[in-house]
Simulated scan of single mutants.
Amino acid sequence: MPTISKKGVNMPQSPIRKLVPYAEEAKKKGIEVIHLNIGQPDIKTPKQALDAVKNNSLEVLAYSRTEGSDAYREKLSNYYKSQEIFVSLHDILVTTGGSEALSFAMGSIADSGDELIIPEPFYANYNGFATAMGLKVVPVMSKIENNFSLPPISEFEKLITNKTKAILICNPGNPTGYLYTHEEIQKLASLVKKYDLFLVADEVYREFTYEGHKHHSILREVGMEDHAIVIDSVSKRYSMCGARIGCLVSKNKAVISTALKFAQARLSPPTYAQIASEAALDTPQEYFDDVIKEYVSRRDLLLDEITKIPGVLVGKPQGAFYCIAELPIEDADHFAQWLLEHFHIDGKTVMVAPAGGFYATEGAGKNQIRIAYVLDKENLKSAVKILKEGLKKYQEC
């Protein structure tokens, strides 16, 4: 029998999606599953984005430019200026989701066997893309006791080798909701300049910061023109996950021209989705003000309820819409599956993402889960009640 590639065998399962078969079986039995496992907001997509597609009069759905349309990239450039990030349309490559931007970035800056240093826990697909590219993830542990703040720079520095190509961060963080301070960004910027590395920042949750905290983009840092690469996306910003439009942004011309070659191999990003994304850039600030207010309210309810559960420790998000909770159990994978297969209250159960898949360190995060608070408060309250009662029952088993 022909064999599967080692890369394929080593590709990690998604901790966010791997329990889907168990959720589907629960639904077949008539059980309602409350999804805390996936960052699919229930916030409405801006009307102007949807109308731009509905009212379009295209007669031929043609290829777009490989790098994305000039009109969209020019408008993106203006959006970044409003964020005090000064880039031109030529510094922007439109991609099929932020995921493709991340893949292009990795392929452009590192070869098979090279290393990426990433603070963990981190977005699980970083592991997947690194594996697909033959790269090694070198983790630096951040701790729930410190609310997942940046580990000491000395911890990064001692891991740098001649194989190290970049440091990768998510800011604000998925899965932790941590928002890096300006001082932390400056420390990372100094480090990559010292060792001539890239700093790749996944900034897709830029708009979602709480309590007056400000997001600090790496593209604002002086002297980072050759080092900074930003991954961005419309998915969460405008609740347009299905559009699959992202972008890679860098002032490093070699990075953009190299990423363009990867992009040419996939031809072009989707045309209608670019039309919707271009229109979404006209979304008024009031939209974000309302969304942030809603997320803060959901976060506060979630934290208030979950911290009442004995033995549970949870990080406090300062941005995005995720948190990591540490549970008084040994195996969150088993617990998450058990909830779907064996436990419900009034015909409802809950689906969470075991956090082990958000770590690269073997065995780390085994007793943690990631919660996405993208549901209304009534569902969140029900979900925490199910978690609380489920933990009691599970510990008795």
Rank of each mutant, 00 (worst) to 15 (best):
P270W: 09
F343G: 05
I329F: 09
F262I: 01
K44G: 03
K143T: 04
K165D: 07
K381G: 04
N37F: 02
N174H: 07
K236T: 08
I256S: 07
G356P: 00
I309D: 10
R244D: 14
F358Y: 15
R65N: 15
D333S: 12
D282G: 00
E155K: 04
I275D: 00
L116S: 09
K165P: 07
T3A: 13
A124E: 14
K253C: 08
T271L: 15
S77T: 06
L248A: 01
N171S: 14
H344C: 06
L36E: 10
K251L: 03
Y180H: 09
V384W: 07
G39E: 10
I144C: 11
S69G: 07
E330Q: 14
I92K: 00
K388Q: 14
E84L: 06
M133S: 12
K165T: 08
I369Q: 06
A276F: 04
Q274Y: 06
V192T: 03
D202R: 08
F262R: 03
V234A: 12
N146L: 08
A105W: 02
L303S: 06
K187V: 01
A130N: 00
K236R: 07
Y205F: 13
N56P: 06
E221S: 00
S77L: 02
P310T: 06
Y178T: 10
D226F: 01
Q285K: 13
P15M: 08
T258S: 13
A105T: 14
Y373H: 13
K7Y: 03
G390I: 04
K381H: 13
D346Y: 07
G173Y: 08
T164F: 09
T131G: 03
L301H: 06
S103E: 11
K366D: 03
A325H: 08
V312E: 03
E389Y: 11
F104D: 14
I345F: 01
A273C: 03
D91C: 13
A325D: 07
L313F: 14
E155I: 00
T131A: 12
A110C: 13
T95E: 10
E155T: 00
F86C: 02
V384S: 11
E25N: 10
E84D: 11
A353L: 01
F335W: 12
Y210D: 02
G128I: 05
I324N: 10
